[in-house]
Design a protein around this nucleic acid. Structure first.
Lengths: 142, 142
DNA sequence: CATATAAAGGACATATTTATCTTTTATCTT
DNA sequence: AAGATAAAAGATAAATATGTCCTTTATATG
């Protein structure tokens, strides 16, 4: 459902949300090594997230990545879409290009309700909230 | 969520369920061309499904593939698992190897209930039923 | 039995995704 | 201003998934 890349993105972003801030920017190296994601690959991912202003970057010494308050209020769906596009989420479960509610595939009725629930939750819940839950020990990212 | 291969498999199997029988076996060519799946690729897929006795094959003239009564009573989850293994379905949504109910990832609670609903339905409903619905025009496979 | 047909099997080719490396650019610190 | 640090950018490499081809094996039919 999610590409490896957007899985890394989700984990990276949550990690930044918890551990980084304007005063404590984190490099791709530090993040990648702790959450166990290939460092140069994560760097690329962060680069793309930064381009779409989903995270903030700063060059030079004491540089690195973090999420500002605005970005912490964002959601994980944007992160996933930034990396994967809409394709993976909206596409037909068995890969038919013309599959729709009007012209459904054999298993069309199964997927969308579930997918929509997931999407809505990924949209509704802020990154800040995800970070908070993870911090509390309710969940983990590595 | 499903690989291209298992998407093809699902569509191919439903097509066979509708149009093939012991007395009317269909070749990968005929199936592939009508449902718009690369023929040699579909042949490979059918080969694997046959190995696991999810479909039946016969060599020689008038040979081809079909589903017997027993196989029609089977489910699509077996088809998907035969091609993709368990990995794609059971794996953590954000790709953590040790993710579980006891040790959940940040978004663990979101995915499994949905995934389980889907899995249960793919297990409960027989291929025969899927074929029937498709035949009725309620849905399509190409 | 000979022939034609179609699957089985395995090698090969292409495309896409994942991962790495190197150079350039920006910026903080002294 | 000079040096060090870290991201940006783009080229390259490796791995995996997708797709094709060719030879062998089995079998129905004349």
């Amino acid at each position: 459902m999610l590409s490896q890349q957007s899985k890394y993105a989700v984990r990276g972003v949550i990690y930044l949300a918890i551990h980084a801030s304007v005063n404590r920017k984190l490099g791709s190296r530090e993040v990648g090594e702790t959450i166990n994601v290939p460092v140069p690959f994560l760097a690329k991912i962060f680069q793309n997230l930064n381009k779409e202003k989903l995270i903030t970057s700063a060059k030079g010494p004491k540089g690195g990545f973090f999420l500002n308050e605005d970005q912490l209020s964002g959601n994980l769906l944007s992160v996933i879409k930034c990396i994967d596009g809409n394709g993976n989420f909206n596409s037909c479960f068995i890969g038919l290009p013309q599959c729709s509610d009007d012209n459904p595939c054999s298993i069309h009725h199964l997927a969308p309700p579930l997918r929509n629930t997931l999407i809505n939750e990924l949209k509704r819940k802020s990154i800040r909230e995800f970070a908070k839950d993870t911090k509390k020990g309710k969940s983990h990212i590595f």
